[in-house]
């Protein structure tokens, strides 16, 4: 990897300072790159979430594009409405996007998302995946990983994280990708790529929640990188449901490196860590086989 990078993004800040995200918030950083890469010809919908808080209190907005705050389960449908209206007005060049949390995507918003994808709605859907209902104070969502503590799974979640990317890839939409704030170059590239494609596009961005995961204020980027290098959250793309590309993946870092710094995993016993390691290894090998299969 290059030592020092420069990112090809919109220099005027579409994302404004003074927003209400917690200090060091991974999602706020993702906002910056999503918005500044997309540029001003964009309209967003945001459901109730941390994203809605970051958007700003009335009458101020942190997003220098038009935004509508919709209901928790409606992001994809709401974005569809905007895009169709724009299309009917001959303003098809304007992107309609949704920026939702994992609860609003994996759980309650999934039905609307699935339908929008099936309809091929020309929207970009950004899931700010912080692996739980963090804005309500850390409850589990279907994105919460195995054994993670949340206030609704105080003994640790007993089931695995839902694989959103694979489900969306199964819709055979033109573009599905994972990204994270640990790799801004990759994030920016994916947003740019998505912007050039027509149809339903989804980028699932791992955005660590410092409070919900139990991390220090300066660790959002570092923990994101550990998620990638440990193989827990590989960065990859699926085009048209078949073409897999791995962008950044595991480098042999054991999952324990990733788990041990997070308070939500503090209760783990060695055998549970081993179990997670085995799960991650399996998933990663499946991913690699898919990449090879469609290469």
């Amino acid at each position: 990897m290059e030592n020092d990078k420069h990112y090809d993004i919109c220099e005027e800040n579409i994302f404004s300072s003074g927003h209400q995200a917690c200090p060091g918030c991974g999602q706020a950083l993702a906002f910056r790159y999503v918005l500044n890469t997309l540029g001003p010809d964009t309209i967003a919908v945001v459901p109730p979430s941390c994203a809605a808080i970051i958007s700003g209190p009335q009458p101020y907005s942190s997003m220098r594009i038009p935004v509508y705050q919709t209901t928790l389960e409606s992001s994809a449908a709401s974005a569809s409405g905007i895009k169709r209206a724009l299309k009917s007005k001959g303003k098809d060049h304007i992107q309609a996007i949704a920026i939702a949390g994992d609860g609003g995507t994996y759980d309650i918003g999934f039905q609307a998302l699935s339908s929008a994808a099936e309809r091929g709605e020309d929207i970009i859907y950004f899931c700010m995946d912080n692996e739980g209902y963090m804005n309500t104070g850390t409850q589990k969502s279907s994105s919460t990983p195995h054994y993670a503590y949340t206030t609704s799974t105080p003994g640790g979640k007993t089931t695995m994280k839902k694989n959103l990317v694979e489900i969306m890839a199964a819709h055979q939409i033109p573009y599905v990708a994972t990204a994270t704030v640990g790799y801004l170059d990759d994030l920016v590239n994916k947003i740019k790529k998505a912007k050039e494609i027509k149809g339903t596009r989804l980028i699932n961005i791992l955005t660590p929640c410092l409070d919900g995961w139990g991390l220090t204020d300066s660790s959002a980027v570092g923990i994101s990188r550990l998620a990638v290098t440990s193989g827990i959250f590989p960065l990859y793309e699926v085009e048209n449901g078949t073409r897999y590309t791995l962008n950044y993946g595991a480098d042999g870092t054991p999952v324990s490196e990733y788990l041990k710094v997070q308070r939500r995993y503090r209760h783990l016993q060695e055998e549970q860590i081993n179990e997670i390691q085995a799960e991650v290894d399996l998933q990663y090998s499946i991913l690699k086989r898919k990449i090879a299969c469609f290469a």
Binding site: S16, S17, G18, H19, Q20, P23, G56, Q58, P59, Y60, S61, S62, R64
Partner: peptide
């Protein structure tokens, strides 16, 4: 109606948090 936004959050002094 009053719920259209009128400006940007850069009026907030989040520096006071630190």
């Amino acid at each position: 109606p009053t719920t259209w936004t009128t400006g940007w959050t850069d009026i907030f002094n989040t520096g006071t948090w630190r």
